[in-house]
């Protein structure tokens, strides 16, 4: 028996059939959200690196919380609001999210494989806390791996966003 789950992905409603009948577009129960995003929806900005929930590359927002999408089953996402890296840029104007702009300004990436996950983890942090300290950002990102070492510049970008937010609050 197949069942349907529906969710919002980057503002667009998506409905999937879940089951094991072998139907071509059916999603098996054990399919991870990262696989659905990458292979079925071609949202390849979400990277999968470890598949163990340990590197943070596949981080997306699920109901405004940063989660590793390789550890979440698509079948369990019924009713969820999912945002991926592709969902941050304004689809009409092409304007980037402030975090994305600051990542460019501060050159907060090297190879860039981990960058979408880091940006989504920061997005989740800033939703909870618009003015985190440098140490709070470092702790929040401790589940995001970067081997090229962009960490110092990522923290600079996050500091800059926290300052912008603080200035906006005080204005």
């Amino acid at each position: 028996m197949s069942r349907q789950v529906s969710m919002t992905i980057n503002g667009k409603k998506e409905v999937f059939s879940i089951g094991h009948s072998g139907a071509r577009w059916e999603i098996p129960d054990e399919e991870t959200l990262s696989l659905t995003l990458r292979e079925r929806l071609n949202l390849t900005g979400t990277k999968e690196a470890c598949g163990q929930g340990a590197c943070g590359c596949c981080t997306v927002l699920m109901n405004n919380r940063a989660v590793p999408s390789c550890q979440i089953l698509t079948a369990d996402c019924d009713g969820a609001d999912i945002v991926t890296i592709e969902g941050l840029q304004d689809p009409d104007t092409g304007e980037l999210d402030p975090i994305q702009k600051l990542f460019i300004e501060k050159y907060a990436f090297q190879c860039g494989f981990c960058t979408p996950g880091i940006i989504m983890a920061l997005k989740g942090l800033f939703i909870k806390n618009p003015t985190p300290s440098r140490a709070e950002v470092a702790e929040a990102l401790s589940g995001n791996q970067c081997r090229c070492i962009s960490q110092y510049h990522v923290l600079d970008a996050a500091d800059a966003l926290a300052e912008l937010n603080a200035a906006a609050t005080n204005a």
Partner: peptide, 11 residues
């Protein structure tokens, strides 16, 4: 740079 921060860079 823009491709990397938007997830469009191709690996």
């Amino acid at each position: 740079a823009s491709d990397i921060v938007t997830g469009k860079a191709m690996f």
